[in-house]
Amino acid sequence: MTYRNGTGTALARALGWFSIGLGAAELLAPRSLASMLGMQGRERLLQTYGVREVASGMAILAARDPSPWVWSRVAGDALDLATLAPALDESNPRREAAAIAVGAVTAVMLVDLLCTRELSRERERPPPRDYSDRSGFPQGVDRARGIARQPTTAMGG
C-alpha cells in the first residue's frame, strides 16, 4: 500500500514529537510530576509510562504507516486515565491538578482518535496518477541517450 502525506500524517508527526516530549518529562522529572498530581510514591510508574511515551513517539515518527502506533497512544491514554482516576478522590489535596490532568489526557485522546480517522481517510485516496507517457523526449528515450555528449558551454546573454 502506498502511503500518502496529508493532514493525518502531519498530525501523527506532531503527536509523535508530543509523545517524546511528554515521555522525556515523565522520565526525567517524575518527582515533580507526582507531587503536582498528588501521586507521591508512584514515581517509578510515571517513569515506566515515560518509556512507553518515548517508544510510541519514536515508532510513530519512524513507521511508514503510523496508524497502529497512534492506536497504541489511544490505549495509552485510557491507561493514563485509569491511573489518574484515584487521584480525583476528595482525600487528595491536589485533586484540582489531577482533574486538569484528566481533562488534558481526554483532550489528547480525542486528538489521537481524530488522527486515526484522518490517517484512515488518507489511505482511501485514489491510486497515484500514471506519468509513464511523459518522457520529455519527442524522439524517444533511446534517441536522446548521449545526444549531448559534447555540451556547448558558450556564454549566451
Binding site: R129, Y131, S132, R134, S135, G136, V141
Partner: peptide, 13 residues
C-alpha cells in the same frame, strides 16, 4: 518516494 514522480522519472529512462 512519490509514485507519480517516480513513474515520470522512469518514463525518462
Amino acid at each position: 518516494n512519490v509514485p507519480e514522480r517516480l513513474s515520470m522519472a522512469r518514463a525518462g529512462g
